[in-house]
Design a protein around this nucleic acid. Structure first.
Ligand SMILES: [Zn+2]
Ligand SMILES: [Zn+2]
Ligand SMILES: [Zn+2]
Ligand SMILES: [Zn+2]
Lengths: 144, 144
DNA sequence: AAATAATTGAAAATTATTTTCATTTAGACA
DNA sequence: TGTCTAAATGAAAATAATTTTCAATTATTT
């Protein structure tokens, strides 16, 4: 189920945003694709059709569209980093307190079944996964 | 953390790395904590004890320690972004091709049970989660 | 103790993102 | 339709995060 141009237009206006050619150009680039693009990559593609549009506008447009819930953000390897001494030597994941950064490790991620099912359904060969749980630790619950 | 000190020393030497005071200082800062720290935060803390050590060295040390499997990397909100038109309006996640960036959405993340169990075990109040699966799509399997 | 290859710090370079500000424009409305 | 105004834009500067370069230093080997 695809969002029509009208729906998008309405959404923008509803929130007091204007419908500019620049925003259409960005939407045009991302709306027909099934892959994820960085701001710079979007800029490159937008530039091909509309050489006048600046990278700043791409950033601003993406922010607006994301705010309206029209976009998903994807985390990419190497994009962000914060470090932690590795404690379990085996495969594990982190439960992270958004308040203080405290981390609890857990080893039972139970994604095998999901991976297998999706592999069967999509033909993807599964390699890896990123899983992080966020919450507030007992300490930070008191504070907040 | 004396038990691991020898292990760490051995690991470094095994891989042809030297055991410098700078590396000890970094290890010292992260090894006793249960939270995650950015390079800048680690730099701040290291500086308190060893004002001479440069931020560049922190970066380089973290790279080495991560390579040796001594550290975990944590993704943090806002750290990295690549965008995608949102397709399912409901809660969902992405299966991403590491080759071409293609994305398949899936809505069945099945993390409730895990979250509940961990909440019970740790006292954390669960808020959110980040889940991404990585693999190679059929196209990219042929190419590779 | 000398040799040497790895490591370091300072500075410069690169990259990604945000802010500032003067100018333009979409959409409202007379 | 033309006028008005808040919102949006582009260029440039500012900020932030990371990487590269390079000469000087140092941990380890012999
Ligand atoms: Zn906390
Ligand atoms: Zn897992
Ligand atoms: Zn692919
Ligand atoms: Zn989910």
């Amino acid at each position: 189920m695809k969002l029509t141009a009208n729906k998008i237009a309405g959404l923008l206006r509803q929130h007091g945003y204007k419908l500019t050619p620049q925003r259409w150009a960005v939407l045009n680039v991302i709306s027909h694709r099934h892959d994820h693009l960085t701001p710079a990559a979007i800029y490159d593609r937008v530039s091909q059709e509309h050489p006048g549009i600046g990278l700043v506008t791409i950033y601003r447009t993406l922010e607006v569209l994301a705010e309206l819930g029209l976009l998903c953000k994807v985390h990419v390897e190497g994009g962000c980093r914060s470090y932690l001494m590795r404690r379990p030597s085996v495969h594990h994941h982190h439960l992270i307190c958004s308040g203080c950064g405290r981390v609890v490790d857990f080893t039972d991620c139970a994604l095998n079944e999901l991976e297998q099912r999706l592999s069967r359904e999509t033909g993807f060969e599964m390699k890896d996964h990123l899983l992080e749980l966020y919450g507030h630790c007992q300490n930070c619950q008191k504070i907040a």
